[in-house]
Design a protein around this nucleic acid. Structure first.
Lengths: 202, 202
DNA sequence: GTCTATAGTCTGATAGAC
DNA sequence: GTCTATCAGACTATAGAC
């Protein structure tokens, strides 16, 4: 028998509605800035009803972070040891930029959390995340050693891909203010392809 | 006669103490996450005494943001039309990375603000910031047109410098978790020089 | 399962003594 | 100028009716 009982359809649906509302509110205001009133209103439920499905405000936040972490790391997971090195890295950049364009709230949720010292997902950073990055960094280092890409520090390469792609989601307000409201993503995709192609084939 | 009376020495000193404490607390917890109790404790003053020097919590935050904006834009201001193009841009990268290393709290203060939609400095983004970036983007575009650097979108070049340098301050916890605690800045400086040199001299 | 009502706590800001 | 005491509102979470 399972340690936790299976959820009914209505429980599953309401939990999803609450997580969607939590994502909207937490990503915009951060953990402390968000209130249960806002989340309840966004979800179309009463405040005590939220706490019927989740034991606390923090539980909603933690559930969001952990359920989204896999999605967030999928583009790096997909980096294929056996593919063409430059194409693999450029594909990774494209997939990561697409996440920023299509899921900006998820990006800002993580950014808020990490910016404040990752009090609720700190463990995953030194655990699963580090394990994954170490593995992929070894792949990239191997490509460099074999002369298939220009020599480059694989860790800072990965950091730079994160920084450059997430910037367009996390600092969207600033980017659009400078560009006068123009959609930054077409230009960003072209620029990043140029940047990493020149870096890796120098 | 001045619209506001001149400040005494003790007033100037206490305002500075409060701003220093506010920077520490706001940069770590964001505007809503910070409390006057924390700031007062950090400053070694009582809570009502804080509000003797500043009319409200928001006034402390706004004073911090506006007094730091100039410092934050100084490295871009210093980009010299008449210098060597590649050296000027690489110097800008170095100066901006030094800000992230030496003033990470200031970086996180701005990141928190922009991430949440810049509710308190939104005006400066489309105003002073855009004006400055437009001017410097024109300089960089001129260098490209004259064949002195490889052709590159000047706006996304500037965004990429911001993203890459600020990442090491704003996501410090994540970077150090992946690197196992090692100081990221020496490696970052070498990597960024390599990256932008290859981009601009391709 | 969902609601209204509310308990208990925290927080920004003020009053008033010294 | 600085403090203690405190107010009024907002907040998370719970109690209990339906």
């Amino acid at each position: 028998m399972p340690a936790t009982p299976p959820l009914t359809r209505i429980q599953i649906k309401n939990r999803q509605v609450i997580l969607e509302a939590g994502l909207e509110v937490f990503s915009q205001h951060g953990f402390r800035g968000a209130t249960l009133d806002q989340i309840a209103s966004q979800a179309g439920l009463s405040k005590p009803n939220l706490l019927y499905y989740f034991p606390s405000k923090e539980a909603i936040h933690v559930a969001l972070l952990s359920s989204l972490l896999d999605t967030w790391l999928a583009p790096l997971q997909a980096l294929d040891d056996h593919g063409d090195p430059v194409a693999e890295i450029l594909d990774y950049v494209r997939r990561k930029l697409a996440l920023s364009r299509d899921f900006p709230r998820e990006s800002r949720l993580f950014a808020n959390e990490v910016l404040q010292g990752a009090p609720r997902i700190g463990g995953a950073l030194g655990g699963d995340l580090k394990t994954l990055v170490d593995a992929k960094a070894a792949v990239i280092r191997g490509w460099g050693a074999a002369g298939r890409i220009a020599p480059v520090d694989p860790y800072h390469l990965i950091f730079s891909i994160w920084a450059l792609t997430q910037h367009y989601a996390d600092f969207d307000v600033q980017v659009r203010a400078v560009l006068g409201g123009e959609d930054p993503f077409p230009g960003a995709e072209a620029y990043l392809e140029q940047l990493f192609r020149r870096l890796l084939t120098a």
